[in-house]
Design a protein around this nucleic acid. Structure first.
Length: 639
RNA sequence: GCCGGCGUAGCUCAGGGGCAGAGCAGCUGAUUCGUAAUCAGCAGGUCAAGGGUUCAAUUCCCUUCGCCGGCUCCA
């Protein structure tokens, strides 16, 4: 008291203040208007409440409600308001944790009675009341002992458990009315700040994410600074649902997953199969170009193969049970690698032969727990675009670089230009030598750096047998799906005793690289459907053009046009039904067919077609040859 | 696997202890039509499956299967 501290403003100016000045006072003096939009302040790199007194020389920066940090604070306070509402409405609940998340917030409760959807409305209503009361949110710093007693007296055992794990002596508690929560902060000044929120769903969630613990009830919600932003968000969610590949898959007749067949097993319908066929053809052509050899291997094999590989021990949970064939156990394959190794080992290999790159569109089956299945994105049977590269240590870096560039080239061909890339390094349990790991990690890292694309390192997240690069693609609901993976493997070559004859005439062990570019065709197709909202670009579209007649009088000419297109390998359909043009266009539009070729009397007279693009644009009438040329150019550019 | 919700015609969905409903799609007929729905008629069902309660179950209860939202898991 009496002493002064030096404050550095956001604009760099300095001024002195008494030592108990609050962040609010300073921001107010700096810019009064700013106070209305600031939810907290960043002081010396730490977030503090506006009401916190500053005790030392500080660099201060207001946190705006619409900044990333501000929104997080805003939502975190919204989750506290929800918890208060729940505690008020349902007396016997205990609170667990309630953070802000990417699109909103959640809070986990331990409640003897499960929440039902109607409860959400009740809770929302109570939240409105709490917001209306504009209750001050106050911070109190307590010693751990005080905090333990405080939460103990309320029976909040989860909070006690959390307190016990906090290393510092002091903890902070945020209070609003009778509700108090253990929380690092910071928070909004009062509940009245919360303008727009909505509770979205109820779900079970294990305490601390561990399935051995009790399952709690989680309520998800979201909050935005304005009603408009909330509405926009909810609208975006609705729009995203329209792109859901499960919905579009049915509407566009692309695939089905049928109870009678079994959960997680995909049937590709003709239209979906055409897209898959095009993807596969493209994939094969590019693999030959990039020095791969394409192979085929069986769907079942003796279980011993997977005992040797180690999968039988490590991943038994995910393998289907063996079937007895003439007294020997066979299983349906969960991976392709052992077969590729067998092919490698079918004769003696020289170091001169390496690298050997075997690629296969291999269909594998893995048991996934029923709760995790999800359309095409998480299934029990799928086709990997798999490859195994056997190379010498000195070839590793170049091979990884090639694979990475190849992957990006393929993904870009399908219109995917942004990804999340992760480099996972050596975990605690690992096989192979430290030296090899270091070399492999360096090879992966340097290959990634050469692409210039940002990536994230996940320390210790590698598989036990080697480091890896994962590339994730985001779907429209912003869920990230792993497609591409590049993994170095020191383990399998050892287990199968994979060797090559070296320059010195002795046996050497090559390194194996596992890689999948699209991951699985099923998942990739699912992501593709959502990416394009079912409106596939011309080169992938199951039907590229449909010929629509105005009346039956034009049938003969329409048939000639159809034959011409078919003759040029254009996937065309002929709609000569006795229906009005408007209906035919509507139906073609709903099927998302790229081009509709309208043929009436005037087109027939001039021997032309009148194309209408999927966008709704009508093009100038053109000859069939001109249209074929247009299709060829567009297909070649993959637009 | 766990928590919650759901399962009715090919699709989207309403209904509800006492004869099972609509729209679209389908079929038949009429209509010959110019850029997102022509009109009329007909047909369509073990109400997911199995068990229980009841005079009576599609409806209420239990089990199983599947789907949806999460959790956990994901070589």
């Amino acid at each position: 008291m009496g002493s002064l501290i030096k404050i550095i403003f956001p604009d760099g100016k300095e001024r002195e203040y008494p030592a108990d000045v609050t962040a609010r006072d300073i921001i107010k003096e700096f810019d009064k208007g700013l106070l209305k939009t600031s939810v907290a302040a960043e002081v010396n790199g730490r977030y503090v409440d506006l009401s916190s007194p500053l005790h030392e020389d500080s660099v201060i920066k207001p946190i705006a409600v619409d900044s990333k940090e501000g929104l997080e604070i805003y939502r975190h306070s919204a989750s506290h308001v929800m918890a208060q509402a729940v505690k008020e409405l349902f007396g016997d609940v205990k609170v667990a944790i309630g953070p802000a998340i990417e699109d909103g917030f959640y809070y986990d409760f331990d409640s003897s009675r499960p929440f039902i959807p109607e409860d959400l409305e009740k809770i929302e209503k109570r939240m409105q009341e709490i917001v209306k009361k504009d209750i001050r949110i106050e911070r109190r710093d307590l010693s751990k002992k005080e905090a333990l007693e405080f939460f103990g007296s309320m029976g909040e055992s989860y909070k006690q458990e959390l307190i016990n794990e906090i290393p510092e002596d002091k903890v902070s508690v945020y209070k609003q009315d009778g509700f108090a929560d253990l929380c690092r902060g910071s928070h909004l000044p009062s509940t009245g700040w919360i303008k727009a929120f909505k509770l979205t769903s109820i779900a079970g969630a294990y305490w601390r994410g561990n399935e051995k613990n009790k399952m709690l009830q989680r309520i998800y919600g979201t909050a935005f600074p304005t009603k408009k932003e909330l509405d926009d968000y909810l609208y975006r969610i609705e729009e995203a649902k329209k792109r859901d590949h499960r919905k579009l898959g049915k509407e566009l007749d692309l695939f089905s997953i049928n109870d009678d067949v079994g959960a997680g097993l995909v049937c590709w319908h003709p239209s979906g199969a055409i897209v898959r066929g095009i993807i596969e053809d493209f994939w094969k052509k590019e693999h030959y170009k990039h020095g791969y050899q394409i192979i085929y291997t069986p769907h079942i094999a003796k279980v011993d193969l997977w005992k040797t590989s180690g999968h039988w021990d490590f991943y038994r949970e995910n393998l289907y049970s063996p079937m007895d064939i003439e007294g020997q156990d066979f299983i349906v394959k969960p991976m392709n690698c052992p077969f590729h190794i067998q092919i490698y080992q079918s004769r003696l290999r020289s170091y001169r032969d390496l690298p050997i790159r075997y690629a296969e569109l291999g269909t594998v089956y893995r048991f996934e727990r029923s709760g995790v299945l999800h359309g095409l994105l998480r299934v029990r049977g799928f086709t990997q675009d798999d490859a195994h590269i056997f190379c010498r240590p000195d070839q590793l870096e170049e091979e990884i670089g090639n694979v990475l560039n190849f992957t990006l080239y393929i993904l870009r061909s399908f219109g995917f230009n942004t990804y999340d890339i992760y480099l996972s390094t050596r975990p605690e349990k690992f096989v192979g030598t430290l030296d090899n790991w270091a070399k492999a990690e360096d090879a992966l890292r340097s290959a990634l750096e050469k692409t210039g694309i940002p990536f994230q390192v996940d320390p210790g997240e590698g598989v036990f047998y080697g480091p890896k690069i994962d590339i994730k693609i985001k779907d429209v609901l912003d869920r990230a799906w792993q497609c591409s993976t590049i993994q170095v493997d020191f383990n399998l070559p050892q287990r199968f005793n994979v060797t090559c004859r070296g320059e010195d005439g002795k046996e050497h062990q090559p390194i194996m690289i596992h890689r999948a570019l699209m991951g699985s065709l099923e998942r990739f197709f699912g992501v593709l459907i959502e990416h394009y909202a079912g409106a596939f670009p011309l080169w992938l579209a199951p039907v590229q053009a449909v010929i629509l007649t105005v009346t039956e009088k034009n049938n003969d000419y329409a048939q000639q046009v159809y034959n011409a297109l078919r003759g040029h390998d254009i996937r065309a359909e002929l709609d000569i039904r006795n229906e009005k043009l408007g209906l035919k266009i509507r139906e073609a539009q709903l099927k998302k067919i790229p081009y509709m070729l309208v043929i009436g009397n005037s087109e027939e007279e001039k021997r032309v077609v009148a194309p209408r693009a999927r966008s709704g644009n009508t093009l100038e009438p053109m000859t069939v040859e001109a249209f074929i040329g247009l299709v060829d150019t567009t297909v070649n550019s993959k637009q």
